[in-house]
């Protein structure tokens, strides 16, 4: 318990250790800590910047997608309109074609009818002549009545 030279010894030891700590322990560790703090701060700032540019890029891409969607809708609308147009055109063409063919068919039928009628007329007259001939051969000379007969044939 008595005070003795240990006191001085301890004081000297303490000053030596404090000096050593001040020179060789504190500065390098503090440097490392501060360096790391700076790096972390820089890293956080970089992350912040990255986040911002990501946000910007996202906004841009959203815009682009919205544009594309709008364009696509437009194109689709146009295509629909065009398709409707084409269908309408086709319909109109069909109607026209049908009318044309109908007209053509009608004309042909008429023509055919007329031709058949002509032929029929010819045949009827021929039959009439033939039957008249048969009748007259028995009764009259063909030669004598030929003018009457041909006149008849012309009238038919």
């Amino acid at each position: 318990m008595d005070i003795n030279m240990t006191l001085i010894g301890q004081s000297i030891a303490m000053l030596v250790f404090v000096w050593f700590c001040m020179k060789f322990i504190w500065p390098p560790i503090m440097t490392a800590i501060e360096e790391r703090q700076k790096e972390i701060a820089d890293g956080l700032a970089a992350a912040e910047r990255g986040q911002q540019s990501l946000d910007k890029a996202k906004a841009e891409s959203d815009e682009i997608v919205a544009d594309a969607r709008k364009q696509a809708t437009q194109i689709l609308d146009q295509a629909h309109a065009r398709a409707n147009e084409i269908v309408a055109e086709g319909k109109a063409d069909g109607v026209k074609e049908r009318e044309r063919q109908l007209a053509a068919a009608t004309a042909e039928v008429e023509q055919e009818t007329n031709r058949a009628r002509e032929e029929l007329r010819g045949q009827v007259s021929a039959i009439a002549v033939a039957s008249a001939e048969k009748i007259l051969r028995r009764e009259i000379d063909a030669k004598a009545h030929e003018d009457i007969l041909s006149k008849l044939a012309a009238e038919l």
């Binding site: 005070i3 240990t6 006191l7 001085i8 010894g9 301890q10 030891a13 303490m14």
Partner: peptide, 11 residues
């Protein structure tokens, strides 16, 4: 040991 603590406090 009071010498030790005193040594430090005197420094």
């Amino acid at each position: 040991d009071v010498n030790i603590t005193f040594g430090m406090s005197i420094a």
